[in-house]
Design a protein around this nucleic acid. Structure first.
Length: 513
RNA sequence: GAGGGCGUAGCUCAGUCGGUAGAGCAACGGCCUUUUAAGCCGUGGGUCCCGAGUUCGAGUCUCGGCGCCCUCACCA
């Protein structure tokens, strides 16, 4: 059967028989491996030397990723989330009187060796019973081996958690993508580069929060469970509340609630909104994803472009450390200001004729193999745009002033009512957001939403959000609004080709085991 | 939804023309006080994704199913 598990459980019992709890408790005041490395620099440790001074005493902890037993001497490479460090355990150097480190808590109550605690001899036996994947803590003195490797030599040694399952192969780690997604916990500890993505994700989000806080925004939470869904064009997930006996939808967008906040006088609000869309899955689409959405009263979409640049270019510079970041074979230049290009101009430039020449647009659509007869003009235009223009939008570009019929929640362009004051930032041919000068005329809003519902026909169960329209009738300040697909931004900044690489636990069908 | 690719030991992977299942790491037993993916000697380990079929014989060929990845479609 699964003999490695059996072997490890046998060791577990041997360790318990020694009076040591293989699952330790609190082990605080640990210095991170990276900090220990940094602290070693001024010590100028010579190969073969072990430093006696207090400046070289450290407590460290982490997971055993490499283990080399040389008889009466054990070397192990121990990983924490700052990096790896070699621990050395020498039979002669272990101090008795505590099989656990001072402050360690893993002496089994009532065991034979409990008082005055297990000795160095017991500690040694435990060290010999270690396996790859175990989590250990040590107190020791810093030195260098003959070959110059920085090493923390244990005076006390503690087993903090015994792994009864074997880790993946120590050199390759987990490479099978399915295994990495299904058992992310293994992928994370086996692959520092995977861990790095999620640390960077957190820092990028922190960075965005800092930008918004400096600009006077407050973070709010709006409903995920919504009786009426809206704010985007997508099919929703449905659910049901038992005691209210009520149909509910998981939100496809927080937009209509955040605008209610504007009506209420919360002038600058943002939300990191987990959204759910019951649509196809692809390397750029996950059924649940995170949208940073924000609204600024008295602003417009130009302000939103400034914020977009400040967050994304700033995160590139300050979190990743460069305004030029590779993605696949390409290098993307995030240096602001990003070009702001009109939709109509880009269309004419890359398609070869203006989008107002509808006959030509439809001919081109047919050439692309499209069933264009049943589609509205603007839909055909947008398909042709996607096909011909998006591939050219590699470096960050704001595409501005979209055809109005595509934008039911957007204010019209004052010079051209055919256009809407909307932009989408594109990077690496991918939409990474959506923003506009928000429509605040309640009559036009009601009309647009009605037209949208009519366009969707009976295929969706969508109904008019009367309460939202009523809110606008109380007066919503003019405002700029912005949504940024956080997952996609993290993909770009970390060089991750699939959205699943930046989601800790992407949706997978049940495993047949 | 359509097409293509993949699925073999805990992990990473070989497996020829259809002929009784292989390596490295990991594991187990032994040796070793300066290793670096430690080394040396020895040992064990398989639902070849699942199920049918063809065949004297299937990891290999055929069909069906499941899962994952990619492309396209839908969508965003």
């Amino acid at each position: 059967m699964s003999d490695q598990i059996t072997d490890r459980k046998a060791k577990l019992e041997k360790i318990r028989a020694l009076g040591v709890d293989p699952y330790g408790g609190r082990f605080e005041s640990v210095t991170k491996n990276a900090a220990i490395r940094a602290a070693s620099e001024p010590l100028n440790i010579e190969p073969g030397q072990i430093v006696e001074s207090d400046a070289a005493r450290f407590r460290a902890a982490g997971r055993v990723v490499l283990y080399r037993d040389i008889g009466s001497l054990i070397f192990m490479t121990v990983r924490d989330w700052t990096g790896d460090l070699q621990f050395g355990v020498s039979k002669k150097m272990l101090q008795g009187g505590a099989g656990v480190s001072p402050g360690g808590t893993n002496v089994l109550p009532g065991s034979a060796g409990v008082s005055p605690a297990v000795g160095g001899d017991t500690t040694w036996k435990v060290a010999k019973l270690l396996d790859l994947g175990d989590i250990v803590g040590i107190d020791g003195r810093l030195g260098r081996t003959k070959t110059g490797e920085l090493t923390l030599w244990a005076s006390h040694f503690t087993l903090l958690s015994k792994a009864v399952r074997p880790p993946p192969e120590k050199y390759h780690g987990l490479t099978d993508v399915e295994a990495r997604y299904r058992r992310r916990y293994v992928d994370l500890f086996a692959s520092p580069e995977s861990q790095r993505v999620f640390v960077l994700r957190a820092r990028i989000i922190d960075y965005a929060r800092d930008v918004l806080r400096r600009r006077g925004f407050i973070e709010v939470d709006t409903p995920v469970l919504q009786p009426i869904y809206g704010g985007a064009a997508a099919r929703p997930f449905e659910t049901h509340h038992n005691t209210l006996d009520m149909k509910l939808y998981l939100r496809i967008s927080p937009e209509l609630y955040l605008k209610r906040c504007l009506v209420g006088g919360l002038e600058r609000v943002y939300e990191f909104a987990r959204c759910f869309r019951n649509e196809g899955i692809s390397p750029r689409h996950n059924p649940e994803f995170t949208m940073l959405e924000l609204y600024q009263a008295y602003g417009d979409y130009h302000d939103m472009m400034d914020i977009t640049e400040e967050i994304i270019a700033g995160a590139a510079r300050d979190v990743i450390g460069s305004l030029k970041i590779k993605f696949g074979e390409r290098e993307i230049d995030y240096t602001p200001p990003w070009p702001r290009r009109r939709y109509t101009e880009l269309f004419a430039e890359h398609v070869g004729f203006p989008l107002t020449d509808l006959a030509k647009v439809r001919v081109r659509a047919r050439e692309l193999g499209m069933e264009e007869k049943k589609l509205d003009d603007v839909v055909v235009i947008s398909k042709v745009f996607e096909h011909h223009v998006e591939p050219h939008l590699v470096n960050p570009t704001f595409v501005i002033d979209y055809p109005a019929p595509l934008c039911p929640l957007t204010k019209r362009h004052p010079q051209d009512p055919q256009l809407a004051l909307r932009f989408e930032p594109y990077i690496n041919s991918m939409e990474i957001g959506n923003a506009y000068s928000e429509l605040n005329d309640p009559a036009i809003q009601r009309e647009n939403l009605g037209a949208q519902l009519a366009g969707e026909g009976d295929e969706t169960m969508r109904v008019m959000d009367e309460d939202f329209c009523e809110a606008l009738e109380h007066g919503m300040p003019p405002a700029g609004g912005l949504g940024i697909g956080i997952d996609r931004v993290v993909m770009l900044l970390t060089g991750s080709p699939s959205i699943r690489d930046v989601l800790l636990f992407p949706l997978q069908r049940p495993e047949c085991r």
